[in-house]
């Protein structure tokens, strides 16, 4: 995802704060639709489609990531299908609300998750940190997010090595046996602690004073503000008016 964030497109050049605010507005408005809403949500599909196209972000890796969390929503959705006995009228037919609820949840979930992933793949962790500082998130937290993000791959590899070593000695048993819970994780924690001491020493050598310095200022330009206003206006319009139904009525009127 960091590689994607280094891409070069109109979206990548938008001020990170604006990308952040548009994504927040998008998530908030999409999730504000009622529990059976499907048709009125559809105009919101336009936003990810345009961002995908303009930023040249490959669709596959984003969808793959979005799929990871799908089981949870599917689970809740299926329970809704089983327990939701309310009745929904759609035209002259009557349906059980559960199915509408299910479809609505999956649609809204998909849109929100994809919009968040798109934000990160056009912005990257460093510019996100910059945006977070601009909205006055405490330095310490921004620093924590950066450090944690930086070390996930390092520590993850270390854990993977440790677990692999354990597995090679445990004759194909599933999971880590309870006798090894403490020592295995404990050892990793001790090693991690030592690593943090080394990191701290290295940080001190490079002049770390407990503060977070974001680096060069990113200037806010007219196009950034226009970007924000355009999307917010579109989202609010699509939220207030049921655009697809209006469109459908207009077409029906012409015919």
């Amino acid at each position: 995802m960091d590689d994607l964030a280094r891409g070069d497109s109109a979206v990548h050049h938008i001020h990170p704060l604006m990308l952040f605010l548009v994504t927040i507005a998008y998530s908030g408005l999409v999730s504000s639709f009622g529990r059976y809403a499907i048709v009125p949500v559809l105009p919101f599909v336009l936003y990810p489609v345009i961002i995908f196209a303009v930023s040249k972000t490959p669709v596959k890796p984003i969808f793959k990531r979005a799929l990871i969390v799908l089981p949870l929503i599917l689970g809740i959705g299926l329970f809704a299908v089983i327990f939701d006995r309310s009745i929904v009228y759609f035209g002259s037919s009557v349906y059980y609300g559960g199915w509408f609820n299910f479809a609505s949840l999956v649609l809204k979930y998909g849109l929100i998750v994809i919009s968040a992933l798109l934000m990160m793949s056009t912005m990257g962790i460093d510019r996100l940190a910059y945006a977070l500082r601009l909205i006055r998130i405490p330095k310490l937290i921004v620093l924590q997010i950066l450090l944690t993000y930086r070390y996930i791959s390092v520590i993850g590899e270390e854990i993977a090595r440790t677990v692999r070593a354990y597995k090679l000695r445990s004759f194909g048993k599933k999971g880590i046996h309870k006798t090894a819970w403490g020592p295995l994780i404990g050892q990793i924690i001790l090693r991690t602690y030592e690593r943090s001491q080394n990191i701290y020493a290295a940080m001190l050598m490079r002049g770390f004073d407990g503060n977070y310095h974001p680096g060069a200022n990113i200037r806010m330009k007219f196009k950034d503000i226009a970007y924000l206003i355009f999307w917010i206006a579109f989202f609010v319009l699509a939220r207030i008016f049921d655009l697809p139904t209006l469109l459908g009525n207009a077409i029906a009127g012409v015919l």
């Binding site: 310490l140 620093l143 924590q144 950066l146 450090l147 944690t148 993000y149 930086r150 070390y151 996930i152 390092v154 520590i155 993850g156 854990i159 990793i188 924690i189 991690t192 602690y193 690593r195 943090s196 990191i199 701290y200 940080m203 407990g210």
Partner: peptide, 11 residues
């Protein structure tokens, strides 16, 4: 404690 928190988070 700052780097410790960072790596513990990653852990």
């Amino acid at each position: 404690k700052i780097p410790l928190m960072g790596v513990m988070g990653a852990l």
